[in-house]
Design a protein around this nucleic acid. Structure first.
Lengths: 137, 137
DNA sequence: TCATATAGTTGGTGGTACCAACCATGTCAA
DNA sequence: TTGACATGGTTGGTACCACCAACTATATGA
């Protein structure tokens, strides 16, 4: 049945399917995809607002609001930098860390289910391919 | 340098990278990613509102607004069904068709550039893998 | 020390997406 | 055939997202 997809169409299809999974999972937990990404980033880091904006590829003002809303939910907290009084760093609270764990638990099986029909070799190729992306961290 | 990514992380990384490309490209043309998806769907179809909502996995009310805005820009137009007076179908206008072509011209080289570092074999794997997705059309 | 750059926030705009409520039309069963 | 129910679409309200422009506070450096 499956038509032969162009590379671009394939990338788009996969992107929308994964995005869909993330959107649904986030919504179930009362979050947005962007908040989910932010929590993911904050799992291993405690960046400044500017650095967080860079990693999310968002305007700083967008991140201000994002952090505001997440802080209202008790997931993240701001802290002043000790070396530069202009700078604010953002980190997970205990509740935020729990939320990140819960997200992973919800998302992982769904993504795996999404890709389960692909061969192991093709899954491995996806892992390699993602590692070559310019933006790969 | 690239760390070995889990399947889930790989899918997420690729998704965000592609989504980013689509967001930027759409923004340059004064569109959103959703509008871009809609135009893509309408290239080969003239669905009803409900069917369009299904394909985009959106609420019908969301699609109402989406079509409203695209119609205001002259990209799509509604037409009443001849067989069921409740039903409205959506189709591209000439301008919408042009826009779809322009989008493709902008997006295609950027997605290819994004994936150019991957081996041809891995790119082929991505095409196969996308074809196995449950949602693949 | 004064000009300039940087970090972050605020306010305003427009788009996205949901839900609940609603009207019009269609369908099916009594 | 008519009355109950289902379906298609829109509207109104809410919350969020993301941008830009303008602003304050702090840092830097000529």
């Amino acid at each position: 049945m499956p038509v032969d997809l162009s590379l671009v169409d394939a990338a788009a299809q996969l992107t929308f399917a994964v995005h869909e999974v993330l959107t649904r999972a986030a919504a179930e937990l009362g979050l947005s995809v962007t908040q989910l990404r932010m929590l993911g980033i904050l799992r291993d880091r405690t960046p400044t607002m500017a650095s967080l904006a860079d990693q999310l590829a968002l305007d700083r003002s967008s991140v201000s609001g994002l952090v505001d809303r997440a802080a209202t939910k008790g997931l993240v907290e701001r802290a002043p930098s000790e070396t530069d009084r202009r700078v604010v760093t953002v980190g997970l609270t205990a509740a935020g860390r729990e939320a990140a764990v819960r997200i992973e638990a919800v998302v992982e099986p769904r993504i795996e289910a999404l890709l389960e029909s692909a061969s192991a070799a093709d899954q491995a190729a996806l892992r390699r391919l993602a590692a070559t992306l310019p933006s790969a961290v």
